[in-house]
Design a protein around this nucleic acid. Structure first.
Length: 818
DNA sequence: TTGTCGCGGGG
DNA sequence: GTGTACGCGACAA
């Protein structure tokens, strides 16, 4: 590929070491760089010429002779223009020494033309004007990007974590701040007292430490969602300045951000959200990296710091744990414990930010935006679009503006359930990056992208992703390097896949093209149908196919090489860029409903997928029953399923199940006042339980554990991990002597909710026999030793090829079984 | 039951 | 900046 395409992806100015950029509309840009070799920090104060794109020069005609073509050169007070080539609404670049004056001139002309006051360029609409933030104007025009010739570990990174008396900065205070310095040293700052002066001194100490350590990057988990807004509110309330930046006026500044925190005190527009920014440093929230990672990987138990750190093996086994709701209280009785807890938080945040931060770091070397913006950007409008804009301007080509669709609706992917019930010897095959591969194979790009930039970018990004995957495979399993390459690969996959989402986002993205998007999904359905048909023709039993992958069962005489051979044979029939891959093999699978199944690997624990098998509020006894019963079922031991069921029923009846195991964790979404107002009409278990337990005040969003007591009473169990008030704190650490739950209710729940998930795997007679009441044995009980799970074929891929249309084709569940 | 909306997190 | 493209629970209809 040529040099021009390289510039589209990477920019063209090779200035190394940029770690932060701050630009202001008057044409000054401050560029902080770490110099190659020494890594010493240097600030370059440079000038750039602010610019914006317009559909017409009409609104600037009032400038008269001060409006000149670029070719006549710059002069004080002069606005210059350049006309871009080709089709495209945004066809004039206008430039001036001062961006504010430039925008004001356009607004003045537009107000005069429209006969009403226009206050912001945005109000002219995206087809009339495009103005980027000053830093992005600078980066787009200069062709520079962050981090050239730097490694992630060359950054000076500091982590800060606040400990507060509660979640609401209007009522609660900061009492401790944990800092992890760039050299790895952890420092704990504490308020000396519980008054304004002590808290103000603590905030001041934080600013002193940050300025002294002078980090390029400040990180924490949920930094933008909690620490920064809390800090800003407290500093405002206390009247202390927040001098955290490297230059300019003190104070955090807000920037609008779709994924930021809701603005406090701005209930007028609940959609308005903000993040914080500061000159010279990048504010990075590791939760953004976690979300981005999990979007592709989908293997995290949650996105909280502790859960993620544990998942990645970053947490010390002896890590201090304190439930959020108990931190302030613990501080008053055992401060050393809170110090250890806060220190562990910054250590884990640092490790996590390093582990998953590679993706955004990599993006910042390509796209003309600040690192902190790329860390939280959406990939379509946040990464791809800036790359496209830069490429068009580099080529001197006019840019299309957002256009409404022509009414064509967007068609989706294929989803087929071929069989339900239990299958053995199950194989999963899938196409790597199906949609981008189809775009590349058939050269499907936006009709208005006449330079072919998107396809060139997708080609590049796919190649880079394959390289990252190869590096990950070559690295030691479980090593940080491997994790980093996997995260980078996952992020590139998101960006590459966003090319398809970008196509389909009619009216929202500049080059949207629903016809191209539909062509991609049509080709995708075609590929899936072809590979299903070809697999079925080779003697395997199809189970489920979804978008780009298929589960199937192979005959008893197949070994793994046969499985791989069949996949390779079918892969050879597909277009060259569409690569069908072996994705896994399993001893057995319960196919329940589309996207709902249980897999038994040859080694290791069961994998459960879909709402039917994973529900956050499922009672633990039911989850445990379901896991054990599925284990027995997938081993083919139906008598074993019955045994597990009888054990569970018996344990409930003997009250051998702990109360905690029949509770579900629920969120309280109404305020006490709201619930009390509606209570006469409808009583709800969770709130009744809260009230009955003596919890009279709770906050919306609090989670508590509730269960149904004998006689249908609503009961609450106070536990360490709930948010209930500070009452009855220690109840759960005592024994559980009462076990006053409603046995009949939980037996019914076991049968109707949990056992029902196994229905597809058994004949109606067997199901009735297995889940008969153990105290009233069924007539069929004796036959269970020889009973086998069943598989019901719903759709024959050879005789009735899947219809080429959107949505599930689940077939007729009452079809005959064998 | 089915559609729509909002959340995920932090102390 | 007003789009995440998910998965799930709460709530209204």
């Amino acid at each position: 590929m040529g040099r021009v395409e390289d510039e589209w992806l990477w920019g063209w100015d090779l200035t190394p070491g940029i770690v932060s950029v701050w630009a202001v509309p008057d044409g000054r840009a401050f560029v902080w760089r770490r110099l190659p070799g020494t890594r010493a920090l240097q600030r370059d104060d440079v000038r750039f010429r602010p610019w914006l794109l317009l559909a017409s020069l009409g609104d600037l005609e009032h400038l008269g002779a001060r409006l000149r073509p670029d070719s006549e050169g710059e002069a004080p007070g002069r606005v210059t223009w350049q006309e871009l080539d080709g089709e495209g609404a945004l066809r004039f670049v206008v430039r001036a020494a001062d961006g504010s004056a430039l925008a004001a001139a356009v607004l003045q002309g537009a107000s005069r033309r429209l006969g009403r006051r226009i206050g912001r360029l945005r109000d002219l609409g995206p087809a009339a004007a495009l103005e980027l933030p000053p830093e992005e104007q600078y980066l787009v025009a200069s062709g520079r990007t962050y981090f050239r010739e730097l490694e992630f570990d060359d950054l000076r990174r500091m982590q800060i974590d606040l400990e507060t008396t509660g979640l609401d900065p209007a009522h609660h205070r900061i009492f401790l701040i944990a800092l992890r310095h760039p050299d790895g040293r952890v420092e704990i700052l504490e308020a000396r007292g519980d008054d304004d002066a002590a808290e103000a001194a603590l905030v001041g100490a934080l600013c002193d430490r940050v300025r002294a350590a002078d980090p390029d990057v400040i990180e924490n988990h949920n930094l933008h969602g909690f620490d920064l807004p809390f800090l800003a509110r407290r500093a405002q309330a206390l009247g202390v300045p927040l001098v955290l930046g490297r230059a300019g006026a003190p104070g955090l500044r807000r920037r609008p951000a779709a994924r930021g925190a809701r603005l406090p005190g701005d209930e007028a527009d609940p959609m308005r959200r903000a993040r914080y920014t500061v000159p010279g440093r990048e504010l990075i929230d590791s939760m953004d990296a976690v979300r981005r990672y999990d979007f592709a990987a989908r293997d995290l138990p949650g996105h909280g710091l502790k859960a993620v750190a544990r998942h990645f093996g970053l947490a010390d086994a002896a890590r201090e744990q304190v439930a959020g709701a108990r931190i302030w209280q613990t501080w008053t009785s055992d401060p050393e414990r809170v110090r250890r807890y806060a220190a562990a938080d910054v250590e884990e945040a640092a490790a996590l930010a390093r582990l998953l931060g590679g993706a955004a770091f990599g993006l910042a070397r390509m796209a003309p935006r600040r690192y902190e913006r790329l860390a939280d950007a959406g990939s379509a409008t946040g990464v791809l679009d800036p790359l496209l804009v830069r490429a068009y301007l580099r080529a001197g080509a006019a840019l299309p503006a957002h256009a409404p669709g022509d009414g064509t609706s967007h068609s989706g992917a294929a989803l087929h359930l071929f069989a339900s019930g239990v299958a053995h010897r199950v194989v999963k095959a899938d196409v790597a990056s199906l949609y981008p591969s189809l775009m590349r194979e058939y050269r499907i790009g936006p009709a208005r992208d006449r330079l072919g930039v998107m396809l060139a970018l997708v080609d590049r990004l796919v190649e880079q992703r394959l390289a990252a995957k190869a590096r990950a495979r070559a690295a030691t399993p479980g090593s940080p390097e491997r994790h980093a390459d996997e995260a980078l690969s996952a992020a590139m996959k998101i960006v590459v896949n966003s090319a398809y989402g970008y196509l389909g986002a009619v009216g929202l993205t500049r080059f949207a093209d629903v016809h191209a998007a539909n062509e991609v999904t049509r080709r995708g359905r075609e590929v899936l149908a072809l590979l299903c048909k070809e697999l079925a023709g080779r003697g395997v039993t199809l189970l489920e196919a979804d978008t780009d992958g298929v589960y199937f069962a192979v005959p008893d005489h197949f070994d793994e090489s046969d499985e791989r051979r069949v996949i390779a044979e079918v892969a050879a029939l597909l277009p060259s860029r569409v690569q069908l891959e072996f994705d896994g093999r399993y001893a057995a699978m319960l196919s329940h409903e589309p996207k709902n199944y249980a897999l038994k690997p040859h080694h290791g624990p069961l994998l459960l997928r879909g709402v039917a098998f994973r529900s956050s509020r499922a009672e633990p006894f039911g989850e445990r029953f379901l896991r054990s019963a599925l284990g027995e079922l997938l081993r083919g031991d139906i008598a074993g399923v019955q045994r597990v069921y009888i054990e569970t029923v018996t344990a409930l009846r003997r009250r051998a199940v702990a109360t905690a195991d029949v509770t579900s964790r629920v969120r309280l979404t109404k305020t006490p006042a709201e619930y009390l107002a509606a209570r006469a009409n409808r009583r709800e278990l969770a709130y009744e339980a809260a009230i009955q337990s003596g919890l009279s005040a709770w906050s919306v969003g609090d989670r508590i554990h509730v269960y149904r007591g004998s006689g249908g009473r609503a009961c609450r169990l106070a536990r360490d991990d709930d948010d209930g008030g500070d009452d009855d704190v220690s109840r759960d650490r005592r024994a559980d002597p009462t076990r006053d739950y409603d046995v009949d209710y939980y037996v019914r729940l076991l049968r109707d909710t949990f056992a029902a998930r196994l229905q597809r795997a058994l004949t109606p007679e067997t199901f009735a026999a297995v889940f008969a009441d153990p105290e009233q044995p069924s007539l069929f009980a004796s036959s269970l030793a020889t009973a086998r799970p069943i598989l019901t074929v719903l759709l024959d891929p050879l005789r009735e090829p899947p219809p080429d249309e959107r949505g599930a084709t689940a077939g007729d569940p009452s079809a005959p079984s064998f």
